[in-house]
Measured scan of single mutants.
Amino acid sequence: KGCNCRRSGCLKNYCECYEAQIMCSSICKCIGCKNY
């Protein structure tokens, strides 16, 4: 399942991608994603 966080840059544990240690991709559609 994808993540669509808006404010944290996908760097907080409530973002599913970050919590699962998945990098930003087409699945993880965080706005302004900084989780490289």
Rank of each mutant, 00 (worst) to 15 (best):
K1D: 00
K1S: 04
K1M: 15
K1C: 00
K1L: 07
K1G: 02
G2M: 08
G2P: 13
G2E: 12
G2T: 03
G2K: 02
G2D: 00
C3H: 04
C3F: 02
C3T: 05
C3E: 09
C3G: 07
C3D: 06
C3A: 05
C3I: 02
C3M: 07
C3K: 09
N4L: 07
N4G: 09
N4D: 15
N4A: 08
N4H: 07
N4T: 08
N4P: 11
N4W: 05
N4Y: 07
N4I: 05
N4E: 10
N4R: 08
N4V: 00
C5Y: 00
C5M: 06
C5S: 05
C5W: 02
C5H: 13
C5E: 08
R6T: 15
R6G: 14
R6K: 14
R6Q: 15
R6W: 12
R6E: 14
R6C: 12
R6N: 04
R7L: 11
R7W: 06
R7K: 12
R7H: 10
R7G: 15
R7D: 14
R7M: 15
R7T: 12
R7I: 05
S8V: 08
S8I: 14
S8M: 05
S8R: 08
S8K: 09
S8E: 10
S8N: 04
S8P: 11
S8W: 02
S8T: 06
G9R: 04
G9T: 07
G9Y: 00
G9F: 00
G9V: 05
G9S: 00
G9N: 06
G9Q: 05
G9A: 05
C10Y: 03
C10E: 12
C10V: 05
C10K: 05
C10F: 11
C10G: 08
C10R: 02
C10M: 02
C10T: 06
C10N: 04
C10W: 03
L11Y: 01
L11C: 02
L11H: 15
L11F: 13
K12V: 11
K12N: 03
K12M: 05
N13W: 00
N13D: 09
N13C: 02
N13K: 10
N13L: 06
N13Y: 02
N13M: 02
N13T: 06
Y14I: 09
Y14E: 12
Y14S: 12
Y14P: 14
Y14R: 12
Y14N: 15
Y14C: 14
Y14G: 13
C15H: 03
C15N: 01
C15I: 00
C15F: 01
C15M: 01
C15Q: 06
C15K: 06
C15Y: 01
C15G: 05
C15D: 11
C15E: 10
C15A: 04
C15W: 00
C15T: 04
E16M: 07
E16V: 05
E16W: 03
E16Y: 02
E16R: 05
E16C: 01
E16I: 06
E16N: 00
E16H: 03
C17V: 03
C17L: 06
C17N: 02
C17G: 07
C17K: 05
C17W: 02
C17R: 03
C17F: 15
Y18G: 12
Y18W: 11
Y18I: 05
Y18S: 10
Y18R: 08
Y18H: 11
Y18F: 09
Y18T: 10
Y18P: 10
Y18K: 14
Y18M: 13
Y18D: 09
Y18C: 09
Y18E: 13
E19C: 09
E19F: 05
E19G: 11
E19Y: 15
E19A: 09
E19L: 06
A20D: 01
A20W: 06
A20K: 05
A20L: 07
A20V: 07
A20T: 07
A20Y: 04
A20S: 11
A20Q: 09
A20G: 13
A20H: 00
Q21P: 10
Q21T: 10
Q21W: 02
Q21L: 06
Q21M: 02
Q21D: 02
Q21H: 06
Q21G: 12
Q21V: 03
I22E: 12
I22C: 02
I22T: 13
I22P: 11
I22F: 09
I22G: 15
I22K: 09
I22A: 12
I22N: 15
M23T: 03
M23Q: 11
M23I: 02
M23V: 09
M23G: 14
M23C: 06
M23L: 03
M23K: 10
M23H: 07
C24H: 15
C24M: 04
C24V: 03
C24L: 04
C24P: 07
C24T: 06
C24K: 15
S25A: 10
S25R: 05
S25D: 05
S25M: 05
S25N: 15
S25H: 06
S25F: 01
S25V: 02
S25Q: 08
S25Y: 02
S26Q: 13
S26T: 09
S26F: 01
S26Y: 15
S26P: 01
S26M: 04
S26K: 12
S26E: 15
S26D: 09
S26N: 10
S26C: 00
I27N: 12
I27K: 14
I27V: 13
I27R: 13
I27E: 14
I27T: 14
I27Y: 03
C28Y: 00
C28G: 07
C28Q: 02
C28H: 12
C28L: 01
C28M: 04
C28P: 07
C28K: 04
C28T: 08
K29M: 11
K29S: 12
K29Y: 10
K29R: 12
K29P: 09
K29T: 12
K29I: 05
K29N: 13
K29F: 00
K29D: 14
K29H: 15
C30N: 01
C30W: 02
C30L: 00
C30G: 06
C30S: 04
C30A: 06
C30H: 02
C30Q: 07
C30K: 06
C30R: 03
I31A: 15
I31Y: 05
I31T: 14
I31C: 11
I31E: 15
I31W: 09
G32W: 04
G32L: 00
G32T: 01
G32M: 01
G32S: 09
G32R: 06
G32C: 01
C33D: 10
C33L: 07
C33M: 08
C33N: 15
C33F: 08
C33H: 09
C33T: 08
C33R: 06
C33E: 13
K34I: 02
K34D: 15
K34L: 13
K34C: 13
K34A: 14
K34S: 13
K34V: 14
K34G: 15
K34Q: 09
K34N: 13
K34W: 12
N35S: 11
N35Y: 01
N35W: 07
N35H: 00
N35K: 03
Y36W: 12
Y36I: 15
Y36V: 15
Y36P: 15
Y36N: 12
Y36K: 05
Y36L: 11
Y36D: 14
Y36S: 11
